[in-house]
Design a protein around this nucleic acid. Structure first.
Lengths: 234, 234
DNA sequence: TATCAAATAATTATCGAAAATATAAGCATT
DNA sequence: AATGCTTATATTTTCGATAATTATTTGATA
């Protein structure tokens, strides 16, 4: 007799197995910082915390370790991946390189259908507020979701599913830093106008401008996170 | 009392846990085609085949699914990933894009130490024969290993560990197609001269030439695999 | 006091069986 | 004959306990 704990994962679908549910919840807790960087993940502790047996926990941790959120050390168990300014910079740099390629290809190959999906994604982003409470900057999970969808929509016509996957992975990694930064400091800018500019350049099929704006967008985010009081390892 | 079956993984190190050993062996069997594409992977069958319990098998399959060699379907278990010409083409295309970036950065940033590692990697590749038996084209695992090392050495100074990781993933995926192709048809070319040309252009820091040669190298491989009698799904 | 070895404790890795879920087969109903 | 329902079977998922490994403490010796 097992309690079926359904959670809604990042894709918006409902997950039925316990292992997937635990995966989603641990992932969420790492992203929000509830499980802080470097924390040792002992199975017994997690079993109580997520009310599950040994196997689902282990399975979830294995999946997370391939996402890069958790590190597995042979015979020493699991721990939450560390964070460092150096890694963040590498992440952003790589993101700029990969999304430059992806966006250029997308603009070159994109069909009318792609254009329309992009219009829709941008519309949705423009209609959602970033915070549910403007006073204390409480994150709006809906914004996270549509923001992610917008950035994927930009590159979705690049013609390479592996490349889209890599960009998503990098986005998820960077998202962790963003979440940790917002949790400790308040944002100083509104990225809305930047999104509009990227969106318009892309629809105009002006690849060079779109890429330049996109990379600037990421660089600005990098600056803000770097200057926020997160407990980096370096 | 558990029999400790040590296997040597792709990095050359010895793996100690049963799960890792099973991972290495299933991975090898998928690469060589012993477990053919689309094959359903029932845990009970695998338990007998690899002489392990439920958990290590499950853990290995989960790891393999994040490598893309195995597909996990919620509540439907695991099966070997399918192969298709379309996917292979996407793979090669993506590889060219990513390694173009990586090689250009490597050439721009590479230190003397990087140069020397590259010299060494190329020397090792030149000293190993591709097949242990030239008559029946029996693969030499040593060649696979140094060949992989050579391609990684080229891009190792790009300054982005994530990017190197992505290139390795794509290389591993493509390697599966190569292995399956060699298993069914005999190779018609010797890639040695191509490697020399790439190597020399890189050492001369001639990025454009090196990239062009590298992409041609991948395209030629693609042609050969596409024309070999593999049972593609499309 | 420092160093090494043995014993103990803590933690991970593994197993075999039980529970939950999906697939297939058989039967009745329209 | 085709469709929907019910039962039976196969497979996946989960649990609790045990074996194996690593880390820590303790004590003896130089």
């Amino acid at each position: 007799m097992v309690a079926i704990v359904s959670t809604v994962n990042k894709a918006g679908s409902v997950s039925s197995t316990l292992a997937t549910s635990v995966y989603d919840r641990i992932r969420h807790d790492i992203l929000t910082g509830a499980l802080h960087p470097n924390k040792k993940l002992r199975t017994e502790e997690l079993r109580e915390l997520y009310e599950a047996g040994n196997s689902p926990i282990r399975e979830a941790l294995n999946r997370l370790s391939s996402d890069g959120f958790v590190v597995r050390e042979e015979q020493k168990g699991f721990h939450v991946a560390a964070i460092s300014k150096a890694e963040l910079r590498e992440l952003v740099k790589t993101r700029c390189w990969l999304e430059e390629t992806a966006l250029r290809q997308s603009i070159a190959n994109g069909t009318t259908q792609w254009e329309e999906q992009l219009v829709l994604a941008h519309h949705r982003l423009s209609r959602v507020t970033r915070f549910t409470n403007e006073e204390n900057y409480e994150r709006n999970p809906e914004w996270d979701s549509v923001h992610r969808a917008f950035h994927i929509a930009l590159i979705s016509a690049c013609g390479s599913r592996p490349l889209i996957g890599f960009c998503e992975q990098l986005n998820d990694q960077a998202d962790r830093y963003r979440q940790l930064a917002v949790a400790t400091s308040f944002p100083t800018r509104d990225p809305k106008s930047e999104h509009v500019a990227i969106y318009e350049a892309t629809l105009n099929r002006d690849a060079n401008t779109a890429i330049e704006l996109l990379c600037e967008h990421y660089q600005k985010t990098l600056q803000i996170i770097e200057n926020s009081p997160i407990a980096f390892d370096d």
